[in-house]
Design a binder for these strands. Structure first.
Length: 320
DNA sequence: GGGGTAAATACTTGCCT
DNA sequence: AGGCAAGTATTTACCCC
């Protein structure tokens, strides 16, 4: 059950790095060299790991041609297809202007003919309830993913999942919002960049519990076999939002390793563990970070952070 | 600020029907 | 299938230092 009070208190404060930067520049944080990784998905600082861009622009075709002949063979026309549009971006539209291909005005008769064509064009575009449903869901997915700062590949995966759900007829009786949110949540987990369900609840109109239910259903019906969350996956986002040192982030990683090896972690919420590890690490590195601050960005209560971080430090000092 | 606790609530698991 | 009970984890709301 989503507590309205809780939702009010937990206004999302996720920070994204919006600084503009180009490869070869100097990082404003640590003066390190900025580079792009091989698949061009991120522009990051080499030494401190600060991410500048996660959604790079399209840099052209993925093929290369060395002769004119090759170019003719390989080049294709049209926009790349995408899972983010209900028809994968392949449709054409009948223009709204009453002009022919040369820009000349056309006769009244032709105009009314065109109008009828447009009508049918529209009808076919969103052919039936399913297609329209898909259209709306993909729009939702897009919007939420942007709001949560999830990278493009996650949007795409969510689109695929939703499409599969529609094809397997999983929608009847469920809300579009719930299923699209669940798809996005599942996609984020598959990509190893999990977000708390409550964050999705904040950017959608669906309650936490409904998302949870929809996700379970989706995961079961599509046999997604998503692995249990790994607390370490939460570290990068938490660390970035809280602006802790690399040292502390590394330390919290170690704390989690030790905890996992000692099986102290089973049954505990991964996000809670990650938050606690980060807090514990900052106390060790003398960075002043309050439990409340951590609690706010991680969506974990102070009490949980306290309990977990004490356990973490205990096993760490024992088994080391 | 940190740290503690009780009661309420949520989630899981196992059992039963 | 679904309901129920028990056990555990988490949250909420107080408290003290």
């Amino acid at each position: 059950m989503t507590n309205p009070k809780q939702a009010r208190e937990r206004t999302s404060e996720r920070q994204t790095t919006n600084q503009e930067s180009v490869e070869g520049d100097i990082c404003p944080e640590c003066q390190g060299q900025i580079t792009q990784d091989s698949d061009r998905s991120e522009t990051t600082c080499e030494s401190c790991g600060l991410v500048f861009e996660e959604n790079p622009v399209d840099r052209g075709p993925e093929w290369r041609a060395f002769t004119a002949e090759e170019r003719d063979q390989k080049s294709r026309v049209g926009a790349p297809t995408t899972q983010l549009k209900h028809d994968k971006g392949l449709s054409t539209t009948i223009g709204w202007q009453d002009k022919d291909a040369y820009g000349q005005s056309i006769s009244a008769r032709k105009r009314s003919q065109l109008q009828r064509l447009r009508t049918w064009d529209e009808r076919f575009r969103a052919k039936d309830a399913q297609e329209r449903n898909l259209k709306q869901a993909l729009g939702e997915i897009n919007r939420m993913a942007s709001a949560l700062g999830l990278p493009k590949p996650v949007h795409e995966t969510a689109g695929v999942l939703y499409r599969r759900a529609v094809e397997e007829n999983l929608l009847p009786g469920r809300s579009i919002e719930g299923m699209s949110t669940a798809s996005l949540y599942a996609a984020a987990r598959q990509h190893g960049i999990p977000r708390r369900i409550i964050e999705f609840a904040e950017v959608s109109h669906v309650t936490e519990i409904r998302i949870q239910r929809a996700y379970r259903y989706l995961s079961r019906e599509l046999n997604l076999e998503i692995e249990p969350e790994d607390p370490k996956r939460y570290l990068p986002q938490f660390a970035s939002s809280l602006e802790v040192s690399d040292e502390a982030e590394q330390l919290s990683r170690e704390l989690l390793e030790v905890a996992t090896n000692n099986a102290v972690h089973s049954g505990k919420s991964p996000a809670g563990l990650a938050a606690a590890a980060l807090y514990a690490a900052t106390t060790l590195t003398n960075e002043k970070l309050t439990q409340k601050t951590v609690s706010n960005v991680a969506y974990v209560s102070r009490v949980t952070i306290r309990k977990r971080y004490q356990e973490l430090l205990e096993v760490y000092s024992d088994h080391d």
